[in-house]
Simulated scan of single mutants.
Amino acid sequence: MSSEPGARVFLHVGVPKSGTSFLQATLRANADRLAERGVWYPTQQHRGLFHAALELTGNHPGWGVPQQRVRGSWRGLCEQARRRGGTSVFSNELFSNVKAADVPAALAHLDGLEVHVIVTARDLARQLPAEWQEGVKHGRGLRFDEFLSRVLDADRSHTHATKFWRHQDLADILDRWGRHLSPERVHLVTCPPPGAPRDLLWQRFCSVVGVDPSSATIPEVGANTSLGVTAVDVLARVNRRLRKGDAPPHLRRTVKQVLVNEALRSDGSERVSTPESLVPRLEEITAEWVRRIEAAGYDVAGDLADLRPHLVSGGAAADHRVTPRASRDLAIDAVAVLTKEVAALRAEVRELQARSTGRTRSRARALARRVAERFRRP
């Protein structure tokens, strides 16, 4: 299939927790404005970026998505980019999880286009607690000190270490995707240090894509909720209880979207911070990344010094403990929020049932059953 002259595709492949949700929310909120300037950002879910990422990683079972729903998603996106011409931006942090052996086949669908790879990166001192918390949101129950001992083991032999570094080893991800492209088409965008202007990451990202950053509106609310240690403790307890039951794969999406982003987000307890004792180890890893990045000649938007560990002052210790009373009080608040959510969903279902006939009524009953199953205690 022929492509429009000058068509370009920018693949934003991660890393997770490096401002990806912020950038994606900004791209999504300004999709129409960007389209007017010749930049296409796909916003659909089905057959969209999420399904394309699941197809390339082969991890659709873990997300409870049938293979037939993701099959052909990546090819479909690439064909649309080819037909549209101009500039296309594909952004999903799960792309960082694509194996090196699978990258050539993924890029083959973009043959004939000007392909660029973008990797956003934040310093490890902030990445470690963010990734630990994300793991709890997705079903783990480790304390932060346990997580650190596993992922920072020199041999990286533990399963948690393997998973962490597969989508957090900055130099490896750049090489994994970038070895098939010329260095000037491989871009590292560094996350600004704490205290920098909120839109600086967006400005750096736009400088790579070739978009005027002032043409977009920055969303007011972030797309990813950071939790205090009490909320994480409650969530870890819920995860352990769910594992004892017959929890379907898609349940973790419900946990993250409803329990985390709605019921637990009001928690005001301390956030954990990386221990100062780990700084020398993190600086050693970062220095090796910088050496490899400079040797490869990749383009850098920002400053490589931004990758040096930035410790957050204060915060909870890595081996923190949460009192049962604090967890109980927050859990009660969460139950109240979830109760209201269930009541609202059931009211919506009843309204749909009252207005529906025939096949539509059957669909409403099926929805009611799914709602009941979602909130049923294991």
Results as ranks from 00 to 15, higher is better:
365 R>T: 10
348 E>Y: 10
347 A>V: 07
342 V>R: 09
334 A>H: 04
333 D>P: 00
350 R>L: 14
362 S>R: 14
337 V>M: 04
367 L>V: 11
328 R>C: 03
361 R>H: 14
334 A>R: 03
331 A>W: 00
369 R>A: 11
366 A>Y: 11
358 G>I: 09
367 L>G: 02
349 V>A: 10
366 A>C: 03
367 L>N: 04
369 R>F: 12
348 E>V: 02
364 A>Y: 07
348 E>C: 05
344 A>Y: 03
340 K>S: 09
364 A>M: 08
343 A>C: 02
368 A>D: 13
367 L>R: 11
368 A>M: 06
348 E>G: 15
355 R>T: 09
330 L>F: 01
348 E>I: 01
338 L>H: 01
342 V>K: 06
333 D>I: 00
352 L>W: 14
354 A>N: 07
327 S>G: 05
343 A>S: 08
332 I>S: 00
356 S>H: 08
330 L>K: 00
360 T>H: 14
355 R>C: 04
343 A>Q: 08
338 L>G: 00
351 E>S: 11
345 L>Q: 09
352 L>N: 06
359 R>F: 14
366 A>Q: 13
329 D>S: 04
361 R>D: 09
332 I>V: 13
342 V>A: 10
346 R>S: 05
361 R>W: 15
350 R>H: 12
368 A>E: 14
332 I>P: 00
359 R>Y: 15
365 R>W: 12
359 R>D: 12
338 L>W: 04
328 R>M: 06
344 A>Q: 07
353 Q>W: 07
358 G>W: 11
358 G>Q: 08
340 K>I: 02
349 V>W: 08
357 T>E: 12
329 D>K: 03
346 R>T: 03
365 R>G: 02
344 A>N: 06
328 R>S: 07
339 T>N: 06
331 A>S: 10
335 V>R: 08
341 E>R: 14
335 V>W: 02
327 S>M: 06
329 D>V: 05
340 K>Q: 11
369 R>I: 08
328 R>Q: 06
355 R>I: 02
359 R>V: 15
356 S>W: 10
352 L>H: 12
342 V>S: 02
363 R>N: 09
365 R>L: 15
334 A>W: 04
366 A>M: 11
350 R>M: 11
369 R>V: 13
367 L>T: 08
353 Q>G: 05
359 R>Q: 13
356 S>T: 08
334 A>I: 03
345 L>E: 09
350 R>N: 09
350 R>A: 15
363 R>Q: 13
361 R>Y: 15
327 S>E: 04
344 A>F: 04
354 A>C: 02
365 R>K: 14
335 V>D: 03
353 Q>M: 13
347 A>L: 11
343 A>Y: 07
332 I>A: 04
366 A>W: 12
351 E>K: 12
369 R>C: 03
361 R>S: 08
342 V>Q: 05
